[in-house]
């Protein structure tokens, strides 16, 4: 097998294993760590897909921000193993699993025939360097960028308001 293929299979296997770990762990902290592994493997895959900037951003935002936030919350709440007693056993989960498997096989079947070899368009991406991405972001897509900025501000204020201890009136 060629080296890139071997690399892809290795990283993909780690990624899938980590995803299974997220779902299967009993401890939320373990889940969070598996999630971190998954994010890092995805960053590596982005590099193989000529998206260096996104890989770095992936690590900064997801690994450096989101997972740490999740870990903080786990530590604030105390990570009891809550899944112990499922009070109302529901059939929806299993139906969902079945449908999910069906969806997965359908997607896999479709993808196997479509999207064969990659185009040799790698030059147009310039290795996913920050410069072209930034240029595109701040010229063609300037409105969405501004909107995302507003969204982040709103989220900040909302999180600040909701994260406080509930006032007397609520309880």
């Amino acid at each position: 097998m060629a080296l890139p293929m071997l690399f892809f299979v290795l990283i993909g296997a780690i990624s899938v294993a980590a995803a299974v770990g997220v779902v299967g762990s009993r401890q939320p902290v373990h889940s969070a760590l598996f999630l971190l592994t998954n994010f890092v493997t995805l960053a590596v895959l982005y590099i193989t897909l000529e998206a260096q900037f996104l890989a770095a951003i992936q690590v900064i935002i997801y690994a450096g921000g989101i997972v740490i936030l999740i870990l903080f919350v786990i530590m604030l709440l105390g990570s009891e193993e809550i899944d112990g007693d499922i009070t109302n056993q529901s059939w929806t989960g299993y139906a969902g699993l079945l449908l999910g498997l069906f969806m997965l096989s359908a997607m896999a079947f479709n993808f196997l025939n479509a999207f064969g070899e990659m185009d040799a368009n790698a030059a147009a991406l310039q290795g996913g360097a920050p410069k072209p991405v930034g240029l595109a972001l701040f010229t063609k897509y300037i409105l969405p960028v501004e909107l995302v900025g507003v969204l982040l501000l709103v989220a900040l204020i909302g999180a600040l308001l909701m994260g406080r201890f509930p006032s007397k009136r609520v309880s």
Partner: peptide, 26 residues
């Protein structure tokens, strides 16, 4: 090079695992 559909299948796999997690965990 790795063909694109490998990436897509991997992504589908991850998505399905995520869905399964949302549906089964409490």
């Amino acid at each position: 090079m790795v063909p694109t559909n490998f990436y897509l299948i991997l992504s589908a796999l991850l998505f399905t695992i995520g869905v399964a997690g949302v549906l089964t965990r409490r």
